[in-house]
Amino acid sequence: MNKHISDSQTSNVARPTKAEAEAAVKTLLLWMGEDPSREGLLETPKRVAKAYKELFSGYHQSPEEELGTVFEEVAGYKDMVLIKDIKFFSHCEHHMVPIIGKAHIGYLPNGSVVGLSKIARVVDMFAHRLQTQESMTAQIAHSIQNILKPLGVAVLIEAEHMCMAMRGIRKQGSTTLTTTFTGSFEQDVANQVRFMTMLRSGS
């Protein structure tokens, strides 16, 4: 599984300044044959640096922060919790072009649940990093499993990759599906079937 640099590690890495990032954008503009001094591109390096700060903000967030608060008063609820159609935008780590998709996440509580928005925030956090779909799927599942410690986690991601649609083979509309199962989902195929059945019902 692809391992991203942790927050503790990034503090030891010499990070370029904003001015250096803007200069790098200007270099790319020159390389592609553009004139960075023309009116329409004068502010582009600043805009790109600002946009990248937002698009890749996930490097400065941690799943522990998002999943740290749980609720134990759930009236004995023990069945699956399923959050469908969590839409996201990410970027392919190979070509740095968009991945557009949605995540479906289910987990079996082990005495406590987490706020539904927190699950969506975890998806958003990992999406705001350079990714492969396979890595992102596993990262989401294992983060929820390791922090919440439920009986099991199921994650399915379906996405279109612009690196396949915009360049190379240029096939638009194709969708990639990836799954990761942990705990009772990994051990019991019946739970996987129930997850997929609930996921497709009403869709």
Rank of each mutant, 00 (worst) to 15 (best):
S184P: 00
E66H: 15
H94C: 11
I144L: 06
Q172R: 09
H4T: 05
I147D: 06
R47F: 09
Y59I: 08
H161Y: 03
L42D: 03
G58D: 12
S135K: 12
G76N: 08
P16H: 08
K50A: 15
D85F: 05
Q9V: 04
Y59M: 10
G168T: 04
T197W: 00
S37N: 14
D188P: 01
S203R: 13
A190Q: 13
Y77H: 13
V122E: 08
Q9I: 05
V155W: 01
E20G: 00
V81N: 09
Q187P: 03
Y59R: 11
Q192T: 05
A120N: 09
H161L: 02
Q139L: 13
K149P: 04
T178M: 06
P36G: 10
V48P: 02
V193Q: 14
S90D: 05
I83R: 09
K118L: 05
Q187N: 14
K53R: 14
A75N: 15
A120C: 06
K102R: 13
S203A: 13
Y77I: 08
E160L: 00
S201N: 13
E20F: 00
V122A: 04
A23F: 01
F181D: 01
A138I: 09
T10R: 15
Q145V: 02
L177E: 08
Q9K: 11
K87A: 14
E134L: 02
L30T: 12
M125C: 02
L151E: 09
S112P: 03
H128R: 15
M198T: 02
L28W: 04
N146P: 02
Q192S: 02
H94E: 11
I100E: 12
V114G: 08
A141L: 05
H128C: 09
T182P: 11
K84W: 05
I5V: 10
N12A: 11
G115C: 06
H4E: 05
I157L: 10
F88Q: 10
S117P: 07
Q61C: 09
S37R: 09
C92T: 07
A49Y: 02
T197I: 03
V193P: 00
F181I: 01
R47D: 08
S37D: 14
